[in-house]
Design a binder for these strands. Structure first.
Lengths: 354, 354
DNA sequence: TTGTAAGCGTTATCAG
DNA sequence: CTGATAACGCTTACAA
């Protein structure tokens, strides 16, 4: 590295030490705020650091502190390693980004080759020494497939939080965050009942995900609590995509007794369901009232605007990040489970039965 | 660090060396594939590394190689440091994530405190020694405000790519990627003309962004090329949000000569425009044909489905990542400008004039 | 082909 | 309050 090098060597702690006339240890203490330094000294050092444009080298720091201040994130993709599968996950990722910032973390979005499997992600997370890992919408079966590697996370002690994915059985380093899916579903169904709807059917989401299962449970529970009849034929299972909602609704509309309301376990599916209803020559909300789940951006944009159960994304993201921090500090009160709030957002897709 | 420590020390290169019986340098060579090692030796070492679950420490590696294999990303937020402002940016971020993976990079999503300014992001990027930086939808004025820090990126030699943001004037380390906005706009207008529409108005996006300006230019150019009249009154400027599209369209509908088509410079605004048209008692596409721009997920979901100009997100993201790599290798042919493809996607919001 | 040793930029321990 | 000095885990001349 010569002076003629095109890259003017970046300023290091040593440079700050040399110019300010103090030792590297003093400079380190002054700049990190650990240990005690004379106020005058500190000022002098800070000023020199500023003038030189000093940027601490996080890699070097990590080497000794064992803390990267980085949280890794893995987001479920629809086809393996392609696009993120659902707008809700993109919105949630954004919320995590924001929460991470509040906790002074940066986010490492683990990217993947087209043909990488889960263990690769874990490897990368481990290699980068992330302080914690957040799994967004990952399928349980995928986790099991990478079981060996996932267990390794626990061995090394990386707090790992599953959002809509319960892997607490893997050990104490695993946390679980989810919205109150069952409660939200009950809110939705109750709303429809209060509107005077009597034939409430359900378009469910994939039953091998916690949200898929819990929302369907909520639907059943609320019907039963109201003394209404739950029937298996009234439920068709989709996979959270618009297309599956459309198909499910077509099927539901062909039931002997036409429904006057439908609880759809995801907004995208609900939008598909509305399309099916319109095509069948029926109207929303007049003939069929529709309630979705998630409150993605599109829900407030479609016409009629979709009544839906909003998941508190900020709460979910905040809890995930907070859990990482707590587990890192090994606090006894580190909760490993958080149920985020839900809220019914009434829009135009539901009105009282006519 | 005792043996009783809850954290079984993570395996290091030294461990692999000890167990395999070779020196650390040989192990390093064997594992990274640099330098020559006896095939038998390599096999032995690889097997030991696997058994021990060795994960190279990227921080340590960075320290010596000066390469982090991380690309930093900063995404524009609507309110300062809150949510990502536009669904297109979220979708684009996802595309960047994917492209980064193909290039063997991970993505550092620079998160921010609620009250951080751009220079803080740059500081974090610099501290983490990102190999490159991608700016998504960042406002030019923000960049100018952080001018000092941005210039520092060039000093240190961090390839920085602006998507929809041209900062090449800052020096050779800056690249610019954008879609063919003007061309796309012309596609849209031509389509409307071919449909027999004669009163084509325009709802423009913020004119202080390249897409805002170029799409409006394209609108004007295509009209003029067709011998049609461009009039300032036929253009109302919004800010890419649904609400601004709604308001702009109301204004456009109140023109003396009612339009029979509108080119809206963003899908979200187009959705708002459709709402305004419907409220005015007119129909889309019968009375007013609508073309948007971007092709965000919502465009194919609204009814009527929106005809729009699709930006090739994969192309944009791929170019940004590729540029980083090329600049890093200081290739003379490192292009600093890429114009990504656009494509007209015809859906239900446009039909021939009746 | 392999090993020795220096050094990357920090923090932390321990004296002074 | 301050300063040597030893790590941290890895790559890379340079020697053998």
């Amino acid at each position: 590295m010569t002076l003629m090098d095109g890259h003017p060597r970046v300023t290091t702690l040593k440079d700050v030490a040399r110019v300010s006339g103090f030792s590297t240890s003093t400079v380190s203490r002054a700049l990190t705020g650990t240990g005690s330094v004379d106020p005058t000294t500190r000022e002098r050092i800070e000023s020199v650091a500023r003038d030189l444009g000093y940027r601490p080298h996080e890699g070097a720091r990590l080497l000794v502190t064992q803390r990267s201040n980085v949280i890794g994130v893995i987001v479920a993709t629809l086809e393996p390693n392609r696009r993120i599968g659902h707008p809700f996950l993109r919105e949630l990722l954004d919320a995590v980004r924001y929460s991470a910032g509040e906790g002074n973390y940066d986010l490492l979005l683990l990217a993947g080759h087209p043909d990488e499997s889960p263990e690769h992600y874990v490897h990368r997370a481990l290699s980068r020494r992330v302080d914690g890992l957040v799994l967004l919408g990952i399928d349980r079966r995928e986790v099991d497939r990478g079981g060996r590697e996932v267990r390794e996370l626990a061995t090394v002690g990386v707090p790992t939080i599953g959002v809509d994915l319960d892997i607490r059985s893997f050990g104490p380093w695993f946390g679980f965050v989810t919205a109150d899916n069952a409660g939200g579903a009950r809110l939705a169904v109750r709303h429809l009942l209060e509107l005077g709807r009597r034939r409430i059917v359900c378009c469910a989401g994939s039953l091998d995900t916690p949200p898929g299962r819990d929302r369907l449970d909520g639907y059943r529970l609320e019907l039963e609590a109201a003394g209404a009849l739950y029937r298996d034929e009234d439920v068709v299972v989709g996979d959270f995509t618009e297309g599956s909602g459309y198909r499910a609704m077509r099927q539901l509309l062909s039931l002997r007794e036409t429904p006057d309301a439908v609880f759809v376990c995801g907004d995208l599916m609900a939008i598909g369901a509305m399309r099916a209803i319109a095509e069948a020559g029926l109207s929303v909300p007049g003939d069929v009232a529709v309630v979705g789940f998630d409150d993605v951006e599109a829900a407030s944009i479609v016409r009629p605007a979709l009544t839906t159960v909003r998941q508190d994304k900020e709460d979910i993201a905040g809890a995930a990040v907070r859990m990482v921090g707590e587990m890192l500090r090994s606090r006894d009160d580190a909760s490993r489970h958080h149920v985020a709030g839900v809220e019914l957002v009434v829009r135009a897709s539901t009105v009282p039965a006519g």
